[in-house]
Write a protein that binds this DNA or RNA. Structure first.
Lengths: 260, 260
DNA sequence: ACCTGAACACCGTTCAAGT
DNA sequence: ACCTGAACACCGTTCAAGT
């Protein structure tokens, strides 16, 4: 318990998922007048975040969406942060592609999981900043992590290396999804397509001598050839390449493990 | 130009760095009464962000730090967003380790650049969320990117692959720095060390049956053996492993390039 | 047990006015 | 050219009160 400017501040919990069971049972136990419960609130949160983005999300707006007073929500959820953590785990729940992922070549399974993760981050551009802000230990996050560990178990890496690779894969995919989700968010805010946005930025840069000096001939890198079929495809190629890099790296490290 | 709830909203610029020269020249042109200019404002912003974090940063607090009215800052900077973008490029400027990085084995140079980048993100835990939010085309960001491209030029990859690898390396290091900077930020907010924080989270999880089921024996993964000398060292190992994975992957892909 | 209204201590930014 | 004060339209959250 600390004091900030005379206001009592209790140390924040690490995560909603670590609150005691009693607090978590604030789910519907009878027919509420408003029909509210945690699930419904979380769903509305996801809907609102998808529609208007993280910056415009507020407890008051959420309450409006639920046709209820802002303060009603606080009966089910302690803070805005907790609510966002719930929303985060909810969309990670979309990644349950089914248990068929448990067989087949580990390379292909890793590619599939990575692609699904990235696709989710692109579908929900507000996920990236949140993912970086929480512990990600909700039930759905854990289920996904378990699947990824199963894949790496089959890679031929040693037990210690599997943990290292798990962390590498996650941060790697996160890095991609975060940047990408962000550009999407910005474009949406500006009301442009990604290609327009990119062209505008490139145009502004080309008109500035420092930038040309720095990038050399920008046409070479970002012109029709370099860009191929637009920004989306360029990023697709980048991601595919990065995935190759990852798989190739794991294979090579696994050979080292096997050799010793 | 759009309308949101009757309020006129002009499409946001892509970046401070893409504003016209006239606007950027709002630097000191004479001795100001308050001694304000962009540089001083940016420096104060970095100081404040380091000390209190992104969440507590506000234009009003910054103004207080500068002993000036909140609105004075707006003479030099259009929006809070612009200011944060300036602060971001300023700390990337810390990465100028000198031109000696231009020779030597590309593997070692890549490792050095990656390590420096990560260290910077750990020094300034507010960088990660911002880095994901802007285009990162300030002069210092570009200088760093140029150095990284020089390194990859020497890796033996083809020209196209070099671009892919550049993106991979950046997103990769970003992923690491973001997660790590975040935990640091949370710990600081809670007034705990990272080890305390980690132990607490682990303790809470161990007391919950679902978690044990999910992670198996948590002691095995996170106990004294798995953790080694604390969280910091565990992350150090993870990062080192990931760096190996990256270098090994690039080497293998370069061999493929050479073979065809 | 659940929901509301009023209030507190904040925000970023605009705008008219001062020097 | 630079800086200020007052004001607008918001925030998250607390707290006492209602049903």
């Amino acid at each position: 318990m600390g004091m900030v400017k005379g206001r009592a501040v209790s140390a924040p919990r690490a995560s909603v998922w670590l609150t005691d069971a009693a607090a978590r049972t604030r789910t519907r136990r009878s027919e509420q007048p408003s029909g509210l419960d945690r699930e419904r609130i979380t769903a509305a949160t996801v809907r609102l975040l998808d529609r208007e983005g993280l910056a415009r999300f507020s407890m008051r707006r959420l309450a409006g969406e639920l046709k209820v007073t802002a303060m009603s929500v606080y009966w089910y959820v302690d803070t805005k942060e907790d609510l966002l953590e719930l929303a985060l785990d909810a969309v990670v729940g979309e990644l349950t592609v089914g248990p068929e992922g448990l067989e087949g070549d580990w390379r292909q399974r890793l590619r599939e999981l990575a692609r699904a993760y990235r696709a989710m981050m692109v579908r929900h551009p507000w996920v990236a900043p949140l993912m970086g802000s929480y512990l990600n230990i909700g039930p759905c996050s854990q289920a996904f992590s378990r699947r990824m560990r199963a894949v790496l178990h089959d890679s031929g890496l040693g037990a210690k290396e599997q943990l290292g690779a798990l962390s590498a894969v996650f941060r790697f995919v996160y890095g991609f999804g975060a940047i990408e989700g962000n550009v999407i968010r910005r474009c949406r805010a500006a009301g442009h397509t990604q290609d327009e946005y990119y062209r505008e930025a490139m145009g502004s840069m080309a008109r500035r001598p420092e930038f040309v000096e720095s990038f050399g001939d920008t046409e070479e890198l970002f012109g029709p050839e370099g860009m191929g079929g637009g920004v989306a495809e360029m990023r697709e190629r980048d991601f595919a390449f990065a995935l190759d890099l990852l798989v190739t790296g794991i294979e090579a490290m696994a050979r080292e493990t096997a050799a010793t």
